[in-house]
Nucleic acid binder design. Structure first.
Lengths: 203, 203, 203, 203
DNA sequence: CATGAATGAGGATTCATTCAT
DNA sequence: TATGAATGAATCCTCATTCAT
């Protein structure tokens, strides 16, 4: 059993290294221009080894994307659960995402690119991506619904409001990455909170 | 002169057809997976003919992107000039963009992908893209500044506000394209206007 | 008839210009790297026009080669006929060739390349090249035979001797073209005459 | 170490096979008309494998040319060192070259073609070719100088004499390859020796 | 399990040739 | 006759994937 466990640990370590390298290389070059060779080198293993853990370049890409997405979703969900008011949830959402992407710029590029791809092919693989993507929006939508119910904010269509919050936040991340010396994460998040909470405030 | 003109017309027609086909194919497959062959076929010409008008696949891509961007920018700027109040300018911006992208879905995908690429390589070619991109944001920023001056809205940082409006709009476009049977363009635009104008309203 | 003649003159002029341009471009780039476009431009006509006079790129090449070869052969033969002794014929041969190639460097490169090609493909077209090539050697061989008959030189195998003279001369041309500031044509020719006439002198 | 050595042996074998195939195909078709595909097939490997050993078609060509040139030069130099008299050195030079090219006809064609190219582009790559080419001539020139010093032959310009010998020999090779049923290598070499040694004999 | 040499399908680009004007 | 825009076959090179060691 120790043997098995040792194997598992090694295997998990390899997978982790591969995905870390994959995010770096895919993030910097995009899917097509990234080479398996380069990912392997960055992971400190040989090209062939990757194929022991993943059946194809696409599979590596999806694993890298899915892993990051799940981590991000979990983190955002956790932070949002920690607070109660709509404004606090809003702030938790924006700040966590901004901070996460500040720390995982390469991943953001994959994520962003995949949004674009999801627009094109409603293929089986993308279904999962779309689902996780929508899970994030749903986090916001339910917060909006609750706030409406609690009369914290005026009655607004939850889906559109959630989408708006979601995209304002994503837009800020894009702006932050395009123009380097950005404001602090907290300041940018505060702006989102301010705009949205005022925008949704009861009349 | 007639001769020359006839040639010019044909040449313009070819360029137009190539760019139209390019937007379609690049939009559906992305730059790397798109084949010159397919673009040519879609344009109804032979592969080699493309190289009479553009020196490389990349050049075709940039021309397609730039052309669309300029058209969009011009249209948005024109619509915004037609109206006076901040709210109307806001509506003009959102509605024009949503409508344009509803009609040019393929182009939106190129556009979206390139935002992602611009995050990675601050190369010479991308400079122009970034500039046009920022021209759009500037349209909004100056509207915001004017509104602040006219005391239509409260004092907010123009750049951030513009980015937020810009991204909320873009986000709605993404949502519309991901989930097909969307609300009307006017309704989605109205939501943006509502959220933002209330969010920026004087206290 | 005047009409016809005018046509003929124009046609001859076109052919001449094409061949002149062909020698220049083929000589500077070799057959494969030379483009029909470039030849046409150098000849001051349009690409398609070349195909009114020659059926293919190869045909242009062969015409350029054959024309030059014939001119050279005629010139050499004429000069050799003007003199009587073996030494004088030798000098006429070497000096005329050296001078001709000094004046037609581009042509020499085509000529040289084709010797190489003739080694490879004993095709129909090359037959003629080989024949003209051997006609030149034959000029020398008959001079050698006559000299032997007249006892000007010792008895040597005419074919080998002719080949040797031919190649020594050609070798000098190569040397002249590789190392620019060469000796005068007369001096180089004199060396050939000296070496060979002494080498073939009666014992 | 054994491992490494086995790899090295395999690698050397591959390189050798590639160059052998390259000489064959380039020799029969010339650089431009030769296809990497065909070279690979002739070497018994796949197209892509060539690119593991050489970065481009050009690199393969140069390696094939350089390798052959060096082998030839080494062989000629060795044979010439083995003998003392001018006549013997002359014979060693001529016979070794004739024999080498009899055995490596394909290589001769590359070699010959490159002489032509060297006439055109004095580019960096050709520099090395020109150097090795001149090293061969220098072998002869120093032999001539020594013979003059030892009074074996009359006083002649060493460079021109060397060039003449060099080219007579090359000319004979061309003749041998153009007209198949040639004399024996020894007989052709003897002719060169006879002509030249008599031509340079003291008066 | 790990390796990396070998594979070969795929794709951008060039250019001789054609043909409508 | 002259043109040059259009064609598409031909070819170099890349790189995801396989497999013998």
């Amino acid at each position: 059993m120790a043997r098995r466990t040792k194997q598992d640990v090694l295997s998990a370590f390899r997978c982790g290294e591969i995905l870390r390298a994959a995010r770096q290389v895919f993030g910097q070059k995009g899917f097509a221009r990234a080479g398996i060779d380069e990912i392997a080198r960055s992971a400190g293993i040989a090209k062939g080894t990757i194929y022991l853990y993943y059946p194809s370049k696409e599979a590596v890409y999806w694993a890298a994307l899915r892993g990051g997405l799940r981590e991000l979703l979990a983190e955002v969900a956790a932070r949002m659960r920690e607070v109660a008011s709509f404004e606090d949830k809003l702030r938790a959402f924006a700040e966590t995402k901004i901070r996460y992407f500040d720390d995982h710029r390469d991943f953001f590029r994959i994520y962003h690119a995949e949004v674009g791809n999801a627009l094109t092919r409603p293929a089986a693989t993308d279904q999962e991506f779309t689902r996780i993507y929508q899970d994030q929006v749903e986090l916001l939508a339910s917060a909006v619904r609750a706030a409406v119910r609690r009369k914290e904010i005026r009655r607004v269509p939850a889906a559109q409001a959630a989408a708006a919050i979601f995209e304002v936040t994503r837009g800020l991340v894009v702006q932050r990455l395009m123009a380097r010396p950005a404001a602090s994460a907290a300041a940018d998040a505060a702006f989102v909170v301010d705009l949205v909470s005022k925008g949704l405030r009861k009349p």
